Amino acid sequence: MSEAPQVDILEASKEKFVNLISELDDSQFHTFEQFVQSALQEYHGQIHHHHGDEGDAMDTEEHDGSYQPVSDAKMMRLGRMIKDLRTRVPISAEAPGEKTVIPNTPDFKGFTDQNTVHVDGFLFSEEDVDDLCEEGKMSRNYCLDCKSKNCAPLNFISHSASVLQLQFLYQVALADKVKDKVIVDVGSRLGAVLYAGHLFTRARKIIGVEINEWFTKLQKDMIKQYKMDDRIEVMCKDIQTMPELLSKDADIVIMNNVFQFFNDLPMQQQIWKFVRAETKKKSGLLLVTLPALQDQLKEAGLSANKLMKGWVKEVKLNYDGGWFQDLNDDELEEIKQVHLYKVL
């Protein structure tokens, strides 16, 4: 269908809808509004499922609602680590010579090397970025043709979980599931998941697997400096060379958008199939992904339903449970990137 007829249908539908609600009196309007909202939600779900993979919906279970508080002293210690890291890495938090690839997917349509900035979400909050812009160290816009009036917003990409995401991860999603357990962070990069895990939890062991030597050394230096080597270990390896780490050692595996920006599609597919095959050997193993596992598999060109069937069920998290005060819409969307799954 051409674009023009689609526009005509849309405009005609809008007109019909307005005419329809104009016929309702005040007593009927509220009931009709509730009906429309529920109908739209249902239809949205059908569309989402239709555009996904064929097959049955994935099994789910509800999160138990546990919450683990974190003291101000621990948050301040994490803040000191962040300030320290800012002096050791560039704003983009990219390793020397590191090459990242902007995925050719709908989520990143229009993103280019010219209009995209890498800013580490662990090191810099939105407020920090605003401060950097005010100081002239960064801009939120770029010039389209070197004329000052013709500017467009830059796209921002982070390769680390933010502090808020880490708080939600450990204080809510994994609140009562970590004590005496082994956590494995695949692609540990700056070590954000490791440091927060050490501060926020009583995990027995926290293992980072990082393929980049520069990032590995950085993490080891931080771990030694802040005396976290009693429970944290970092390995400079490709996760595909360590199957038993996933199939036997780990109780919890964390993956923060770990393959998409660093591997081509065939390699992403190979790694995801490896992760599935090894984690599937340990029933009850918990997987945490940012963003949703379904989305990451689809972005890698894989059938999410086919791979997830017989592998995991999602543990539905309550993002708006009042865990943190005064979350704005952007912050709520931020923690909604955290997803929890249990191996069947």
Rank of each mutant, 00 (worst) to 15 (best):
E244I: 09
E244Y: 13
L245M: 03
L246K: 04
L246Q: 06
L246W: 01
L246Y: 01
L246C: 06
L246D: 08
L246V: 03
K248H: 14
K248P: 12
D249Y: 06
D249I: 09
A250M: 02
A250Y: 02
A250R: 03
A250G: 05
D251V: 05
D251P: 13
I252P: 09
V253P: 01
I254V: 00
I254S: 01
M255T: 02
M255S: 01
N256T: 04
N256H: 01
N257Y: 00
F259V: 12
F259E: 12
F259I: 12
Q260I: 10
Q260N: 13
F261E: 12
F261H: 15
F261S: 15
F261Y: 12
F262T: 10
F262S: 10
N263D: 12
N263E: 14
L265H: 12
L265C: 14
L265N: 14
P266G: 08
M267C: 11
Q268L: 10
Q268E: 15
Q268Y: 05
Q269Y: 09
Q270I: 13
Q270L: 15
I271E: 10
W272Q: 12
K273F: 10
K273H: 13
F274M: 08
F274Y: 12
F274R: 05
V275C: 08
V275R: 06
R276V: 13
R276E: 14
R276H: 11
R276P: 13
A277S: 15
A277N: 15
A277M: 12
A277D: 15
E278N: 09
T279A: 11
T279D: 14
T279I: 11
K280Q: 15
K280W: 08
K280A: 15
K280P: 13
K280I: 11
K281G: 11
K282Y: 11
K282Q: 10
S283C: 13
S283M: 15
G284Q: 05
L285A: 10
L285H: 06
L286G: 14
L286H: 10
L287V: 06
V288H: 01
T289Q: 00
P291H: 01
A292T: 06
L293H: 03
L293G: 07
L293T: 01
Q294K: 09
Q294C: 08
Q294I: 03
D295C: 05
D295A: 04
Q296F: 01
Q296G: 00
L297C: 05
K298L: 06
K298W: 02
E299I: 07
E299V: 10
E299G: 08
A300L: 04
A300F: 01
G301N: 12
G301M: 07
G301W: 03
G301A: 11
L302K: 06
S303L: 03
N305Q: 03
N305C: 01
N305E: 04
N305Y: 02
K306D: 11
K306Y: 02
L307I: 02
M308D: 06
M308E: 07
G310W: 07
G310V: 02
G310F: 07
W311Q: 10
W311A: 07
W311M: 07
W311C: 07
V312L: 11
V312H: 10
V312F: 11
K313M: 04
K313T: 03
K313Y: 01
E314F: 01
E314Y: 01
V315E: 07
K316Q: 02
K316F: 00
L317N: 08
L317T: 05
L317M: 09
Y319G: 10
D320N: 15
